[in-house]
Amino acid sequence: MAKYAMVLDYKNCINCKACEVACKEENGVLLGEHYHRIWVGVNPIKGVYPDLSIASNAFYPSQCQHCENAPCQDVCPTQATHYDENGVVQVDESKCILCSYCMVACPYDARYVDERSMTIDKCSFCSDTRLARGLTSTACQATCPTKVRVFGDISDPTSEISMILKTREYFTLKASLGTEPKLFYLK
């Protein structure tokens, strides 16, 4: 039983969106801009040409945070949303009634409706694709040109990800909500 998590060395992200395409191809995410498990956000630039603030234009790659205290799981009426044995927040397609409560409850906008099954879809840490094949990488991690992501088991203190979390400072998103995300952004 692992406890999967991801660290993002987000300052290296160049906003190329290879991760998004890799995720779509690997996990069969539908085409269409509203259908995505993963994204890169950017805030509008500050300043007036040519005095622009470089820092204001940082890129923030993101996806489902696999919260340890996941609001989406709390609110799901049928336990379609659940934690699997590796602590990954998953959606059981056959139980999802599409009440959309989890979409309203997720503070990270991580969920969308898959138009084929008409159920909720989101990042699964590639559990049913790559992990199921015995790989220990996710599609978004493997493809990234600047290697923003490290995926791994934080319950194993010797894993690469555990070592990174021990030696580098990090933060999590909307930490004040108490959702305890398992996506760690390196400072």
Partner: peptide, 10 residues
Amino acid sequence: IGHPIRMVIY
């Protein structure tokens, strides 16, 4: 609700 019958079951 997207799947009302499923709702009753689950």
